[in-house]
Design a protein around this nucleic acid. Structure first.
Lengths: 209, 209
DNA sequence: ATGTAATCGTTAAAAAAATAACAATGCATA
DNA sequence: TATGCATTGTTATTTTTTTAACGATTACAT
Protein backbone atom coordinates (compact mmCIF):
# COMPACT_ATOMS: atom_id res chain seq x y z
CA UNK A 1 0.00 0.00 0.00
CA UNK A 2 3.14 2.14 0.03
CA UNK A 3 2.56 5.31 -1.98
CA UNK A 4 5.28 5.70 -4.55
CA UNK A 5 4.77 9.47 -4.86
CA UNK A 6 7.75 11.41 -3.59
CA UNK A 7 7.30 12.22 0.08
CA UNK A 8 7.74 15.89 0.81
CA UNK A 9 10.66 17.25 2.81
CA UNK A 10 8.20 18.68 5.36
CA UNK A 11 6.86 15.22 6.16
CA UNK A 12 10.30 13.67 6.36
CA UNK A 13 11.41 16.32 8.84
CA UNK A 14 8.51 15.35 11.09
CA UNK A 15 9.20 11.62 11.06
CA UNK A 16 11.98 11.71 13.68
CA UNK A 17 9.68 13.64 15.96
CA UNK A 18 6.94 11.05 15.63
CA UNK A 19 9.52 8.38 16.28
CA UNK A 20 10.71 10.15 19.41
CA UNK A 21 7.23 10.43 20.88
CA UNK A 22 6.17 6.92 19.92
CA UNK A 23 9.31 5.33 21.32
CA UNK A 24 8.70 7.13 24.56
CA UNK A 25 5.07 6.01 24.73
CA UNK A 26 6.03 2.45 23.91
CA UNK A 27 8.55 2.50 26.75
CA UNK A 28 5.84 3.72 29.08
CA UNK A 29 3.56 0.86 28.13
CA UNK A 30 1.06 2.83 26.03
CA UNK A 31 -0.48 0.36 23.60
CA UNK A 32 -2.79 2.41 21.44
CA UNK A 33 -3.20 6.03 20.47
CA UNK A 34 -5.50 8.06 18.27
CA UNK A 35 -4.37 10.81 15.95
CA UNK A 36 -6.28 13.17 18.21
CA UNK A 37 -4.40 12.21 21.37
CA UNK A 38 -1.09 12.27 19.55
CA UNK A 39 -1.85 15.72 18.17
CA UNK A 40 -2.46 16.99 21.70
CA UNK A 41 0.84 15.62 22.91
CA UNK A 42 2.89 16.82 19.97
CA UNK A 43 1.30 20.15 19.21
CA UNK A 44 0.26 19.23 15.66
CA UNK A 45 -3.20 18.78 14.19
CA UNK A 46 -4.78 15.34 14.07
CA UNK A 47 -5.43 15.87 10.39
CA UNK A 48 -1.78 16.46 9.63
CA UNK A 49 -0.77 13.37 11.54
CA UNK A 50 -3.18 11.19 9.59
CA UNK A 51 -2.01 12.68 6.31
CA UNK A 52 1.63 12.20 7.22
CA UNK A 53 1.18 8.54 8.09
CA UNK A 54 -0.82 7.96 4.96
CA UNK A 55 2.11 8.97 2.79
CA UNK A 56 3.48 5.56 3.66
CA UNK A 57 0.34 3.48 3.91
CA UNK A 58 -2.47 2.88 6.37
CA UNK A 59 -1.03 2.00 9.74
CA UNK A 60 -4.20 2.64 11.71
CA UNK A 61 -7.55 1.11 12.15
CA UNK A 62 -10.86 2.96 11.99
CA UNK A 63 -12.63 3.23 15.28
CA UNK A 64 -9.52 2.13 17.14
CA UNK A 65 -6.52 4.32 16.35
CA UNK A 66 -2.92 3.25 15.97
CA UNK A 67 -1.07 0.48 17.70
CA UNK A 68 1.86 2.29 19.25
CA UNK A 69 4.57 -0.32 18.89
CA UNK A 70 3.47 -1.29 15.40
CA UNK A 71 3.47 2.34 14.29
CA UNK A 72 6.79 2.92 15.98
CA UNK A 73 8.27 -0.01 14.11
CA UNK A 74 6.92 1.19 10.80
CA UNK A 75 8.45 4.61 11.26
CA UNK A 76 11.72 3.04 12.33
CA UNK A 77 11.75 1.15 9.06
CA UNK A 78 10.78 4.16 7.00
CA UNK A 79 13.66 6.11 8.53
CA UNK A 80 15.96 3.17 7.89
CA UNK A 81 16.79 2.69 11.56
CA UNK A 82 16.32 -1.07 11.42
CA UNK A 83 19.63 -1.33 9.62
CA UNK A 84 23.11 -0.86 11.08
CA UNK A 85 25.44 1.92 10.10
CA UNK A 86 29.16 2.26 10.64
CA UNK A 87 30.22 5.77 11.50
CA UNK A 88 33.49 7.69 11.72
CA UNK A 89 34.04 11.12 13.17
CA UNK A 90 36.58 13.50 11.63
CA UNK A 91 37.77 15.98 14.22
CA UNK A 92 38.18 14.86 17.83
CA UNK A 93 37.77 18.28 19.42
CA UNK A 94 35.13 19.03 22.01
CA UNK A 95 32.16 18.54 19.78
CA UNK A 96 33.55 15.41 18.13
CA UNK A 97 34.15 13.94 21.57
CA UNK A 98 30.72 14.96 22.78
CA UNK A 99 29.10 13.16 19.86
CA UNK A 100 31.30 10.13 20.41
CA UNK A 101 30.22 9.98 24.06
CA UNK A 102 26.56 10.30 23.32
CA UNK A 103 25.25 6.88 24.22
CA UNK A 104 21.92 7.51 22.52
CA UNK A 105 23.34 6.90 19.07
CA UNK A 106 24.83 3.55 19.96
CA UNK A 107 21.54 2.46 21.44
CA UNK A 108 20.06 3.01 18.01
CA UNK A 109 21.70 1.63 14.96
CA UNK A 110 24.83 3.74 14.63
CA UNK A 111 28.20 2.31 15.58
CA UNK A 112 31.09 4.72 15.81
CA UNK A 113 34.13 2.86 14.52
CA UNK A 114 36.85 5.50 14.97
CA UNK A 115 37.67 9.17 15.28
CA UNK A 116 40.33 11.05 13.35
CA UNK A 117 42.36 14.15 14.12
CA UNK A 118 45.53 15.99 13.15
CA UNK A 119 46.49 16.81 16.73
CA UNK A 120 49.33 14.47 17.91
CA UNK A 121 48.21 14.97 21.50
CA UNK A 122 44.85 13.40 20.70
CA UNK A 123 46.00 10.66 18.36
CA UNK A 124 46.18 7.38 20.27
CA UNK A 125 43.65 8.32 22.93
CA UNK A 126 40.30 6.59 23.33
CA UNK A 127 36.88 8.08 24.13
CA UNK A 128 34.43 5.52 25.47
CA UNK A 129 36.44 2.83 23.71
CA UNK A 130 36.57 4.71 20.43
CA UNK A 131 40.12 5.22 19.19
CA UNK A 132 41.38 8.54 17.88
CA UNK A 133 43.53 7.87 14.82
CA UNK A 134 45.72 10.01 12.58
CA UNK A 135 43.59 11.71 9.97
CA UNK A 136 46.10 10.65 7.31
CA UNK A 137 44.85 7.11 7.81
CA UNK A 138 41.20 8.04 7.36
CA UNK A 139 40.92 7.20 3.67
CA UNK A 140 42.25 3.67 4.11
CA UNK A 141 40.07 3.15 7.16
CA UNK A 142 36.92 4.09 5.27
CA UNK A 143 37.76 1.83 2.38
CA UNK A 144 38.58 -1.14 4.61
CA UNK A 145 35.80 -0.86 7.20
CA UNK A 146 32.57 -0.39 5.28
CA UNK A 147 31.82 3.04 6.69
CA UNK A 148 28.40 4.49 5.88
CA UNK A 149 28.31 7.81 7.70
CA UNK A 150 31.00 10.46 8.01
CA UNK A 151 30.64 13.04 10.77
CA UNK A 152 32.51 16.28 10.09
CA UNK A 153 33.66 18.13 13.22
CA UNK A 154 36.76 19.77 11.82
CA UNK A 155 37.28 23.55 11.55
CA UNK A 156 35.38 25.43 8.87
CA UNK A 157 38.32 25.77 6.50
CA UNK A 158 38.95 22.01 6.38
CA UNK A 159 35.33 20.86 6.24
CA UNK A 160 34.88 20.65 2.48
CA UNK A 161 38.26 19.01 2.02
CA UNK A 162 37.49 16.32 4.59
CA UNK A 163 34.04 15.82 3.09
CA UNK A 164 35.54 15.36 -0.38
CA UNK A 165 37.94 12.75 0.96
CA UNK A 166 35.08 10.86 2.58
CA UNK A 167 33.01 10.99 -0.59
CA UNK A 168 35.90 9.78 -2.72
CA UNK A 169 36.31 6.77 -0.46
CA UNK A 170 32.69 5.80 -0.92
CA UNK A 171 30.89 7.14 2.14
CA UNK A 172 27.17 7.47 1.47
CA UNK A 173 26.25 10.28 3.86
CA UNK A 174 27.80 13.26 5.59
CA UNK A 175 26.69 14.75 8.91
CA UNK A 176 28.40 18.11 9.02
CA UNK A 177 28.83 20.31 12.09
CA UNK A 178 31.32 22.80 10.65
CA UNK A 179 29.70 26.23 10.27
CA UNK A 180 29.58 26.06 6.49
CA UNK A 181 27.35 24.22 4.02
CA UNK A 182 29.44 21.41 2.61
CA UNK A 183 28.50 20.09 -0.80
CA UNK A 184 28.28 16.49 -1.97
CA UNK A 185 27.39 14.73 -5.22
CA UNK A 186 23.73 13.83 -5.73
CA UNK A 187 24.28 10.27 -4.61
CA UNK A 188 25.70 11.25 -1.22
CA UNK A 189 23.26 12.48 1.41
CA UNK A 190 24.23 15.43 3.55
CA UNK A 191 22.90 17.16 6.64
CA UNK A 192 24.47 20.46 7.49
CA UNK A 193 23.78 21.09 11.17
CA UNK A 194 24.17 24.72 12.12
CA UNK A 195 23.96 25.11 15.87
CA UNK A 196 24.48 28.84 15.66
CA UNK A 197 21.53 29.21 13.27
CA UNK A 198 19.34 27.81 15.98
CA UNK A 199 20.82 30.18 18.57
CA UNK A 200 20.28 33.17 16.28
CA UNK A 201 16.69 32.16 15.70
CA UNK A 202 16.32 32.05 19.46
CA UNK A 203 17.70 35.60 19.72
CA UNK A 204 15.17 36.74 17.15
CA UNK A 205 12.27 35.11 18.99
CA UNK A 206 13.41 36.46 22.34
CA UNK A 207 13.32 40.02 21.00
CA UNK A 208 10.07 39.55 19.15
CA UNK A 209 8.15 38.36 22.21
CA UNK B 1 9.70 51.15 5.86
CA UNK B 2 9.59 48.15 8.20
CA UNK B 3 6.56 46.01 7.38
CA UNK B 4 4.54 45.37 10.50
CA UNK B 5 2.94 42.19 9.13
CA UNK B 6 4.04 39.13 11.04
CA UNK B 7 7.09 37.62 9.40
CA UNK B 8 6.63 33.94 8.67
CA UNK B 9 8.58 31.23 10.43
CA UNK B 10 9.97 30.11 7.09
CA UNK B 11 11.61 33.48 6.50
CA UNK B 12 12.99 33.68 10.03
CA UNK B 13 14.61 30.28 9.67
CA UNK B 14 16.45 31.54 6.60
CA UNK B 15 17.79 34.70 8.21
CA UNK B 16 20.70 33.03 10.03
CA UNK B 17 21.74 31.44 6.75
CA UNK B 18 21.78 34.78 4.99
CA UNK B 19 23.74 36.19 7.87
CA UNK B 20 26.28 33.38 7.64
CA UNK B 21 26.89 33.89 3.93
CA UNK B 22 26.96 37.68 4.13
CA UNK B 23 29.39 37.73 7.05
CA UNK B 24 31.67 35.46 5.09
CA UNK B 25 31.51 37.64 1.99
CA UNK B 26 32.11 40.75 4.02
CA UNK B 27 35.19 39.16 5.55
CA UNK B 28 36.43 38.33 2.07
CA UNK B 29 36.07 41.93 0.96
CA UNK B 30 33.02 41.50 -1.26
CA UNK B 31 31.30 44.88 -1.37
CA UNK B 32 28.19 44.33 -3.43
CA UNK B 33 26.01 41.43 -4.47
CA UNK B 34 22.86 40.90 -6.50
CA UNK B 35 19.99 38.65 -5.52
CA UNK B 36 20.97 36.54 -8.51
CA UNK B 37 24.56 36.00 -7.41
CA UNK B 38 23.47 35.31 -3.86
CA UNK B 39 20.91 32.80 -5.07
CA UNK B 40 23.64 30.93 -6.93
CA UNK B 41 25.85 30.77 -3.87
CA UNK B 42 23.11 29.77 -1.46
CA UNK B 43 21.00 27.48 -3.58
CA UNK B 44 17.84 29.56 -3.31
CA UNK B 45 15.95 31.49 -5.98
CA UNK B 46 16.68 35.17 -6.52
CA UNK B 47 12.98 35.85 -6.24
CA UNK B 48 12.80 34.32 -2.80
CA UNK B 49 15.76 36.30 -1.60
CA UNK B 50 14.23 39.59 -2.73
CA UNK B 51 10.93 38.70 -1.10
CA UNK B 52 12.61 37.69 2.13
CA UNK B 53 14.56 40.93 2.41
CA UNK B 54 11.46 42.92 1.60
CA UNK B 55 9.69 41.59 4.66
CA UNK B 56 11.88 44.01 6.57
CA UNK B 57 12.22 46.87 4.11
CA UNK B 58 14.13 47.68 0.95
CA UNK B 59 17.81 47.16 1.54
CA UNK B 60 18.86 47.12 -2.10
CA UNK B 61 19.15 49.47 -5.01
CA UNK B 62 17.81 48.87 -8.48
CA UNK B 63 20.45 48.37 -11.11
CA UNK B 64 23.08 47.87 -8.42
CA UNK B 65 22.15 45.15 -5.97
CA UNK B 66 22.82 45.02 -2.25
CA UNK B 67 25.68 46.49 -0.29
CA UNK B 68 27.07 43.47 1.52
CA UNK B 69 28.11 45.04 4.80
CA UNK B 70 25.00 47.19 5.01
CA UNK B 71 22.78 44.19 4.39
CA UNK B 72 24.77 42.11 6.85
CA UNK B 73 24.29 44.77 9.49
CA UNK B 74 20.58 44.99 8.88
CA UNK B 75 20.15 41.26 9.27
CA UNK B 76 22.30 41.32 12.39
CA UNK B 77 19.91 43.87 13.84
CA UNK B 78 16.81 41.98 12.75
CA UNK B 79 18.13 38.88 14.48
CA UNK B 80 18.96 40.95 17.54
CA UNK B 81 22.68 40.16 17.38
CA UNK B 82 23.69 43.77 17.95
CA UNK B 83 22.77 43.37 21.61
CA UNK B 84 24.63 41.40 24.26
CA UNK B 85 23.27 38.34 25.99
CA UNK B 86 24.39 36.67 29.17
CA UNK B 87 24.22 32.90 29.02
CA UNK B 88 24.42 30.03 31.46
CA UNK B 89 24.73 26.35 30.69
CA UNK B 90 23.01 23.76 32.86
CA UNK B 91 24.79 20.45 32.57
CA UNK B 92 28.58 20.40 32.23
CA UNK B 93 28.83 17.02 30.51
CA UNK B 94 30.45 16.54 27.15
CA UNK B 95 27.96 18.56 25.16
CA UNK B 96 27.79 21.36 27.70
CA UNK B 97 31.56 21.60 27.68
CA UNK B 98 31.67 21.50 23.90
CA UNK B 99 29.25 24.41 23.68
CA UNK B 100 31.21 26.31 26.34
CA UNK B 101 34.40 25.84 24.34
CA UNK B 102 32.91 26.95 21.09
CA UNK B 103 34.62 30.28 20.51
CA UNK B 104 32.22 31.26 17.76
CA UNK B 105 29.50 32.22 20.21
CA UNK B 106 31.73 34.54 22.20
CA UNK B 107 32.82 36.26 19.03
CA UNK B 108 29.19 37.12 18.49
CA UNK B 109 27.10 38.62 21.23
CA UNK B 110 26.73 35.75 23.65
CA UNK B 111 28.73 35.68 26.87
CA UNK B 112 28.71 32.46 28.84
CA UNK B 113 28.73 33.47 32.49
CA UNK B 114 28.80 30.08 34.19
CA UNK B 115 28.02 26.39 33.92
CA UNK B 116 26.14 24.28 36.46
CA UNK B 117 26.21 20.60 37.31
CA UNK B 118 25.32 18.12 40.03
CA UNK B 119 28.54 16.14 39.71
CA UNK B 120 30.94 17.00 42.59
CA UNK B 121 33.88 16.01 40.39
CA UNK B 122 33.01 18.75 37.92
CA UNK B 123 31.99 21.48 40.37
CA UNK B 124 34.89 23.88 40.84
CA UNK B 125 36.53 23.18 37.48
CA UNK B 126 36.80 25.77 34.72
CA UNK B 127 36.39 25.34 30.96
CA UNK B 128 38.01 28.14 28.98
CA UNK B 129 37.66 30.39 32.00
CA UNK B 130 34.04 29.47 32.59
CA UNK B 131 33.42 28.13 36.08
CA UNK B 132 31.36 25.05 36.77
CA UNK B 133 29.17 25.73 39.82
CA UNK B 134 26.82 23.63 41.92
CA UNK B 135 23.44 23.46 40.26
CA UNK B 136 21.83 24.27 43.62
CA UNK B 137 23.21 27.79 43.23
CA UNK B 138 21.77 28.27 39.74
CA UNK B 139 18.60 30.07 40.77
CA UNK B 140 20.43 32.71 42.76
CA UNK B 141 23.01 33.12 40.01
CA UNK B 142 20.35 33.81 37.40
CA UNK B 143 18.59 36.33 39.59
CA UNK B 144 21.79 38.18 40.46
CA UNK B 145 23.54 38.18 37.10
CA UNK B 146 20.99 39.33 34.53
CA UNK B 147 21.00 36.09 32.56
CA UNK B 148 19.11 36.13 29.26
CA UNK B 149 19.68 32.69 27.82
CA UNK B 150 19.61 29.30 29.53
CA UNK B 151 21.20 26.36 27.76
CA UNK B 152 19.87 22.98 28.83
CA UNK B 153 22.36 20.11 28.52
CA UNK B 154 21.13 17.94 31.36
CA UNK B 155 19.72 14.42 30.96
CA UNK B 156 16.26 14.03 29.47
CA UNK B 157 14.52 13.37 32.79
CA UNK B 158 15.80 16.59 34.36
CA UNK B 159 15.33 18.87 31.36
CA UNK B 160 11.84 20.19 32.09
CA UNK B 161 12.62 20.67 35.76
CA UNK B 162 15.75 22.72 35.00
CA UNK B 163 13.85 24.69 32.36
CA UNK B 164 11.11 25.50 34.85
CA UNK B 165 13.66 26.74 37.36
CA UNK B 166 15.23 28.98 34.75
CA UNK B 167 11.87 30.37 33.70
CA UNK B 168 10.87 31.04 37.31
CA UNK B 169 14.04 33.06 37.81
CA UNK B 170 13.24 35.28 34.85
CA UNK B 171 15.27 33.86 31.97
CA UNK B 172 13.82 34.96 28.64
CA UNK B 173 14.90 32.11 26.39
CA UNK B 174 15.81 28.44 26.54
CA UNK B 175 18.16 26.62 24.20
CA UNK B 176 17.47 22.97 24.88
CA UNK B 177 19.66 20.03 23.84
CA UNK B 178 17.99 17.32 25.89
CA UNK B 179 16.17 14.82 23.64
CA UNK B 180 12.72 16.00 24.65
CA UNK B 181 10.63 19.05 23.77
CA UNK B 182 10.66 21.26 26.83
CA UNK B 183 7.76 23.67 27.26
CA UNK B 184 7.85 27.30 28.33
CA UNK B 185 5.25 30.01 28.90
CA UNK B 186 4.38 32.18 25.88
CA UNK B 187 6.71 34.95 26.99
CA UNK B 188 9.78 32.71 27.08
CA UNK B 189 11.32 31.74 23.75
CA UNK B 190 12.51 28.18 23.28
CA UNK B 191 14.53 26.26 20.73
CA UNK B 192 14.53 22.52 21.08
CA UNK B 193 17.58 21.23 19.25
CA UNK B 194 17.34 17.56 18.40
CA UNK B 195 20.62 16.32 17.04
CA UNK B 196 19.30 12.82 16.62
CA UNK B 197 16.41 14.07 14.49
CA UNK B 198 18.95 15.36 12.04
CA UNK B 199 20.84 12.06 12.06
CA UNK B 200 17.62 10.11 11.46
CA UNK B 201 16.73 12.37 8.57
CA UNK B 202 20.17 11.63 7.17
CA UNK B 203 19.50 7.90 7.46
CA UNK B 204 16.26 8.35 5.55
CA UNK B 205 17.91 10.33 2.79
CA UNK B 206 20.78 7.86 2.53
CA UNK B 207 18.35 5.02 1.94
CA UNK B 208 16.18 6.98 -0.44
CA UNK B 209 19.04 7.89 -2.77
C1' DA C 1 24.18 63.77 -21.99
C1' DT C 2 22.05 59.79 -23.53
C1' DG C 3 20.99 55.06 -24.11
C1' DT C 4 21.46 50.40 -22.55
C1' DA C 5 21.79 46.81 -19.36
C1' DA C 6 21.21 45.41 -14.78
C1' DT C 7 18.56 44.71 -10.85
C1' DC C 8 15.34 45.84 -7.38
C1' DG C 9 10.55 46.06 -5.28
C1' DT C 10 6.14 44.50 -5.97
C1' DT C 11 2.28 42.29 -7.79
C1' DA C 12 0.46 38.04 -9.91
C1' DA C 13 0.48 33.08 -10.55
C1' DA C 14 1.67 28.52 -9.28
C1' DA C 15 2.87 25.05 -6.14
C1' DA C 16 3.01 23.09 -1.74
C1' DA C 17 1.40 22.45 2.79
C1' DA C 18 -1.92 22.52 6.31
C1' DT C 19 -6.52 22.13 7.73
C1' DA C 20 -11.23 20.74 7.47
C1' DA C 21 -14.88 17.70 6.14
C1' DC C 22 -16.89 13.41 5.64
C1' DA C 23 -17.93 8.70 4.20
C1' DA C 24 -16.31 4.10 5.34
C1' DT C 25 -15.05 0.94 8.66
C1' DG C 26 -14.37 -1.67 12.60
C1' DC C 27 -14.66 -1.78 17.88
C1' DA C 28 -17.32 -2.13 21.93
C1' DT C 29 -21.34 -2.84 24.29
C1' DA C 30 -25.74 -4.38 25.26
C1' DT D 1 -26.05 -10.20 16.74
C1' DA D 2 -27.25 -5.60 16.06
C1' DT D 3 -26.43 -0.68 17.04
C1' DG D 4 -24.01 3.29 18.01
C1' DC D 5 -19.69 5.51 18.59
C1' DA D 6 -14.97 6.46 17.58
C1' DT D 7 -11.57 7.07 14.41
C1' DT D 8 -9.34 6.29 10.25
C1' DG D 9 -8.26 7.18 5.17
C1' DT D 10 -9.20 10.24 1.71
C1' DT D 11 -10.95 14.02 -0.78
C1' DA D 12 -11.90 19.04 -0.78
C1' DT D 13 -10.77 23.59 0.83
C1' DT D 14 -7.97 27.02 2.67
C1' DT D 15 -3.72 28.95 3.76
C1' DT D 16 1.04 29.52 3.19
C1' DT D 17 5.07 29.50 0.56
C1' DT D 18 7.53 29.71 -3.55
C1' DT D 19 8.26 31.13 -8.12
C1' DA D 20 7.53 34.05 -12.05
C1' DA D 21 6.64 38.40 -14.30
C1' DC D 22 7.27 43.10 -15.02
C1' DG D 23 7.47 48.17 -14.39
C1' DA D 24 10.55 51.47 -12.09
C1' DT D 25 14.99 52.95 -11.10
C1' DT D 26 19.83 53.26 -11.13
C1' DA D 27 24.69 52.39 -12.66
C1' DC D 28 27.70 52.52 -16.33
C1' DA D 29 29.56 52.96 -20.95
C1' DT D 30 29.81 55.66 -24.96
Amino acid sequence: MQKSNKVSEAVIRRLPKYYRYLKDMEKNGVQRISSRELSDKMGLTASQIRQDFNCFGGFGQQGYGYNVSELCNEIRKILGLHKNYNVIIAGAGNLGQALASYVGFERECFTIKAMFDVNPKLIGLSIRGIQILDIDTMRDFIINNDIHVGVVCVPKNKAQEVTDAMVECGIKSIWNFAPIDVGTPDNVAVENVHLSDSLYTLAYKMNEI
